[in-house]
């Protein structure tokens, strides 16, 4: 399909072929969003983060909605957001209504996701919705943006909305082919950009990015700097299909043991481990692939952005 206009700064920057970075904010079960705004401010201060994702009930947990934090981050911090929206909790009527609402609030990026199943979350007995799937959500946004209608063709008063829509892709997928074919479907119905899940394997990541090139859509490769050994351990044990490299895991464990009592030194050591691992990783991606940038999922680990990104 023909490219739609770049409504967001994110998509504009991608189309200018500037290698860019996005961050991630995760509102939890909270009414006070000051920690989210603080993270956003730290990201903004680096001058390197083009936009930040705001998650929508990750792991199927019942969390503060993503729309309000998106709005407040844009309004109070001046950092553009990528509004994550899952199809788990809302039918096409609610999705449409929320997207209209978000558009009124000035949200210009939407990342269309299926969402972790509610059976994995903290309200396991909830009835999951899945009226649409994530591809159909992209179709809905496309109709709202390109035609100014809902899925049935009913017109929006005041015309089309201005929004760009992205989709996810999984570099850890196995088998790989159905994943690639699925991304193709999403691009066909109107995805403007792709953000991938996290990758720790440079060869895998490069191969995956190569396969995505044919869609001619900007791709942000997902990376997950690890704030402490516990997170790395949890990741390895509980997230199938992704494994933290042994050396990285061992280094984090050593740092934890070595500086058990000294938090400051421990943090410095952990930051160095992450920088030593991810800086060359990012440089290699920037040099050898057509990726539009990096989606850095350093949630609640904003102190890393400045030292990690200073050479980019």
């Amino acid at each position: 399909m023909a490219k739609r206009p770049a409504y967001s700064n994110l998509v504009k920057t991608m189309r200018e072929s500037k290698f860019l970075f996005t961050g991630e904010l995760e509102p939890k079960k909270m009414v006070d969003l000051s920690s989210i705004l603080h993270s956003a401010e730290e990201m903004k201060k680096t001058g390197k983060i083009t936009a930040a994702n705001v998650t929508d009930g990750p792991q199927g947990d019942a969390y503060t909605c993503s729309m309000v934090p998106c709005h407040l981050v844009q309004e109070k911090v001046g950092l553009e957001t990528i509004w994550q929206m899952t199809v788990r909790d809302r039918n096409r009527i609610a999705l449409f209504g929320d997207i209209l609402g978000g558009s009124i609030l000035g949200l210009r990026n939407l990342l269309a996701l299926t969402g972790d199943h509610s059976a994995l979350g903290d309200n396991k007995n909830a009835r999951p919705v899945y009226d649409l799937d994530s591809t159909q959500l992209i179709d809905l946004v496309s109709k709202m943006v390109d035609d100014g209608t809902d899925l049935e063709g009913n017109e929006i008063e005041g015309g089309k909305i201005e929004m760009n829509v992205g989709c996810a892709a999984n570099p850890n997928s196995n088998p790989r082919e159905p994943e690639i074919l699925k991304v193709g479907r999403k691009v066909e119905v109107g995805a403007d950009f792709i953000q991938t899940q996290t990758s720790f394997d440079i060869d895998d990541a490069k191969e995956f990015l190569k396969e995505l090139e044919k869609f001619n859509v900007p791709v942000l490769l997902g990376l997950f700097p690890i704030k402490n050994y516990g997170i790395a351990w949890y990741f390895n044990e509980n997230i199938p299909g992704v494994s933290v490299p042994k050396d990285l895991l061992a280094a984090l464990k050593t740092a934890k043991k070595q500086y058990k009592e000294d938090k400051k030194k421990r943090n410095e050591a952990i930051d160095k481990i992450n920088i030593d691992f991810f800086e060359p990783f990012i440089k290699e991606i920037q040099k050898t692939t057509k990726a539009a940038g990096i989606h850095c999922m350093a949630v609640h680990y904003e102190r890393l952005f400045e030292p990690l990104l200073k050479n980019f």
Partner: peptide
């Protein structure tokens, strides 16, 4: 899902 698989 009508257009799977998902990331799960």
């Amino acid at each position: 899902l009508s257009n799977g698989p998902c990331g799960g």
